[in-house]
Nucleic acid binder design. Sequence first.
DNA 1: CGCCATCGTTGATATGGATCAAGGCGGATT
DNA 2: AATCCGCCTTGATCCATATCAACGATGGCG
Lengths: 257, 257
Amino acid sequence: MMKATAAAHTPDLRSPRSPRSAAHCLDCAIRHHAVCAHCSGPELDMLSGMKSYRTLKAGDPVVSMGERTGFLGSVVEGVASMSRLLADGRRQVVGLLFPGDFVGRPFSPVAPFDVVAVTEMRLCTFDRRRFEAMVREMPSLEHRMLEMALNELDSAREWMVLLGRKSAQEKLASFFVLAAERGMRLENRRPIDGMMLELPLTREDMADFLGLTIETVSRQIGALKKAGVIELIDARHLLIPDWEALVEAAGGELEAA
Amino acid sequence: MMKATAAAHTPDLRSPRSPRSAAHCLDCAIRHHAVCAHCSGPELDMLSGMKSYRTLKAGDPVVSMGERTGFLGSVVEGVASMSRLLADGRRQVVGLLFPGDFVGRPFSPVAPFDVVAVTEMRLCTFDRRRFEAMVREMPSLEHRMLEMALNELDSAREWMVLLGRKSAQEKLASFFVLAAERGMRLENRRPIDGMMLELPLTREDMADFLGLTIETVSRQIGALKKAGVIELIDARHLLIPDWEALVEAAGGELEAA
DNA sequence: CGCCATCGTTGATATGGATCAAGGCGGATT
DNA sequence: AATCCGCCTTGATCCATATCAACGATGGCG
């Protein structure tokens, strides 16, 4: 029974259609969550005509900091990280990109951060120039971009609170809250008591996202488990017996990223 | 001589005209730096007609988290902080608002953070509904908003790197870099060796911005002084003898906020 | 002028998380 | 089935920063 739940949450990456692409944007899984969410029929046709897909394996670079990238796009399936590597090897993950999230920095060709696939993933991409031109001609698309940018800005600031002021344990709990909320979002559902959560990140990526070391991540997961806030299935899967207790352990509400 | 330099940098807040307002946007100090930067003549007339000014003293609240604010606007003079206060009193400053910066959260009436004047300041405000309607009708204005939001997003992520991975001393040096760059920006100048920097924040605000305590802020300022990276004039004024040395102490380049 | 409040500095001590070190587990390769 | 390697956990110790405490400087106000 628990196995069944686990299976139901495991992304079935390759099943629905050919590995290459989804025929038309109308059939796309992220249709109502991505930058194209508010596009009308003809607008969607136009996007549909210029999109192309990329499939990536965990660990594959998507864009590198400083690079001039010729494309912009959306995450369709899987998860990517945006991060900055300092000269001495310290690394900070500044955001995760889930399905529906926008990839790339419009109107500035030089990438400000590294983007790396952290799971197997599928990306829907557009030629940068054509997409930017389209944005400038379609106010509804530009409005959608603004709406998304403002939401990401709120989320980034929310995360600054975590990085600057939360304890290691609160950081871990907050990460689980974030991952659970984002995991449910595509299906327009909310996290519920007893739900299973699949962690898309390694301990190292979690550490770099939370401003901690892998050892502290490991120990604080252990502490949350001992406190009964989570139950571990394996290193990458956990159960959340009581959602409110988890939010509590996270030190109060987070805005969904 | 040093006194003269100091005077030249001290904002002369009340001098130019009546406390109430600047006549027309064309004469405004932030004309080319604020949300109105790309507006053409007729557009500017429209904004000019709907603006009104607010003057605030250091410590005055601008908007409170959770509040429904009826206005949006721009900082004209002075500096404000955006922050979040946790239930137990911990506080994190998530951003500073300098002249030209946008104030308020468009398209979402509930303020996600507290905004407080940290110096005496002057604000140019617009009725939220009228401004939002104008944005939706003027693609150039909406494009400018998007451009600003994307820049702020880059800055916020940059700051996440600082909060998650930098040492206390690097944090202080980075803050001085930020303050110096922002101080020079309005005049389209870059920081130079020997420049004087006026700190707009108390030690407490700096601590909350950097994720530190006031004692650590005080000690690390002392350490940077001993290292010769800065010279203290008084608690609120310092000299930067060597700009590159300061950037170095900050642990590498910051993108200007 | 002297009081008080706010702000900042400095010193002593405590501690949360980092660092250093060792070993376990599971999956891929052969 | 044995080996290996990446990933994770656990233990011992260290250290950067927090905390606790006292005091100094500055400026507003009676």
